[in-house]
Each structure stands twice: as structure tokens, then as C-alpha cells.
């Protein structure tokens, strides 16, 4: 379709002073809505571990205390959910993917793709190129406070330049893989890559 029809009588009700920071089809919110496929798991940090995996073997696992002792990164970013909301200037703290690689003595990533595995069985796939060079952290704090369970606590992946479902909640394992495979939402109608600026919401976008 070349040009969408004008919706008679429709006007923007919003003051969009930050329009340039809104990807197509998104609107600004100041709330922090929640999207997940099922119930929010209750995870105690005492029982929590996170792992880095290559093929069939574990490269490393960290307990909560060990993970907290890794170098910390704080970032302020805009986040974009596929259900249409965008939230500006969110502040997160955690361990960068780069620092995680360093911690296991890798100077570069061993494979081109990563599958993030979460409590509740959810998964999401990402190219490694979208995680390195400061593009992603494993976040444990939001706005200076421990991450709430509904928002993915104790730890979630944060890849702010992609739609927010790629920032997998309740992260437990990052698995390197040589070839791309679709994750949970990616095999249920959502786009494989999810770039909000190209409005890659659904299969085929």
C-alpha cells in the first residue's frame, strides 16, 4: 500500500517533544508495562546461578555473589516493547557481555549466535554482534534498585537497540551456537531479529 488512508477526525493527543527518539508505530509511556508469556517465577538469589555455555560444555557458572563481584556497568537507554510502548532514559546496572567474555578468558566470541535461556523455559536468539562492544548487559538493577521479579529479576538480558522481548527476563544461561535458531517468541509469530527502527515486529516484517 503506497499511502495509508487518513482516519477522519483522528489527531495526535500527545505532546511528542522527543519524536526523533520514537521508532515507527511506538508511543511514549512513563509507566513500566509488563509482557511475558506466563506467570512470573519467584527466584531466590540463594538458589540462582547463571551459566555461559559453548556447544555441549559449560564455560563457566557464577553464583549470585560471584556474579555481583564482576565489573559493573551502568547505562541509560531508551527501551522499545513490541506491544508499542517506548520508555526513555531508563537506568540499568549489571555486567556487560564484554566483561563476561573477559571473565572466562575469551578475547572474542567463539560462535556467531547466542541463545538466551530463562527460567520458565523461555528462550530468545541473538547474533553475537548485537551483544558485544557495549551493546548488551546482564542487568541486575533498575533505577538503582534490585530488579523486580515482574521485570525479570534477579537478572535479565538487556539489549536495548532491539525490541524488548530480546532482553530476556529471568536469564539463567547464555549458549553460543554456530547457526541461528529461533527462540520462543521467534517461533510464535514474532520477528527473528526485531529491529524497532525497521519495525520488525512480526514474521516477515
Amino acid at each position: 500500500m503506497d499511502r495509508p488512508p487518513v482516519s477522519r477526525g483522528f489527531k495526535s493527543r500527545r505532546q511528542v517533544s522527543e519524536a526523533a527518539r520514537l521508532p515507527p508505530g511506538q508511543y511514549l509511556t512513563t509507566d513500566f508495562p509488563v509482557l511475558s508469556a506466563g506467570p512470573t517465577p519467584e527466584i531466590r538469589v540463594a538458589d540462582w546461578k547463571i551459566a555461559l555455555q559453548l556447544g555441549g560444555s559449560l564455560l563457566e557458572t557464577w553464583t549470585w555473589d560471584e556474579f555481583e563481584a564482576l565489573p559493573q556497568t551502568t547505562i541509560t537507554v531508551d527501551i522499545h516493547c513490541v506491544t508499542k510502548w517506548t520508555k526513555l532514559n531508563t537506568v540499568w546496572q549489571g555486567v556487560s557481555f564484554d566483561d563476561l567474555l573477559k571473565a572466562v578468558g575469551l578475547s572474542e566470541p567463539p560462535d556467531a549466535f547466542v541463545m538466551a535461556h530463562c527460567d520458565g523455559g523461555y528462550t530468545t536468539n541473538l547474533p553475537v554482534a548485537d551483544l558485544v562492544a557495549g551493546k548488551a548487559i546482564i542487568a541486575t538493577r533498575y533505577d538503582g534498585l534490585p530488579l523486580a521479579p515482574a521485570h525479570g529479576g534477579p537478572a535479565r538480558l538487556l539489549v536495548p537497540h532491539l525490541y524488548f522481548w530480546k532482553s530476556a527476563k529471568w536469564l539463567r544461561r547464555l549458549r553460543f551456537m554456530p547457526r541461528d535458531e529461533p527462540g520462543f517468541w521467534e517461533s510464535r509469530g514474532y520477528h527473528n531479529y526485531g529491529d524497532p527502527w525497521r519495525e520488525q515486529r512480526y514474521d516477515g516484517d
Binding site: 500500500m1 554482534a129 531479529y193 516477515g204
Partner: peptide, 18 residues
């Protein structure tokens, strides 16, 4: 394969007029 190739490429869900 480039990073943005979907393993199973589906047709786009096109906008339409109802």
C-alpha cells in the same frame, strides 16, 4: 546467512483496509 535472515522466512503480514 546474515544476522537478520530468519531461519524460516515468513511472508509479511501486510496492512490492509477493513
Amino acid at each position: 546467512m546474515t544476522a537478520t535472515d530468519a531461519p524460516l522466512q515468513q511472508p509479511k503480514i501486510e496492512w490492509q483496509i477493513g
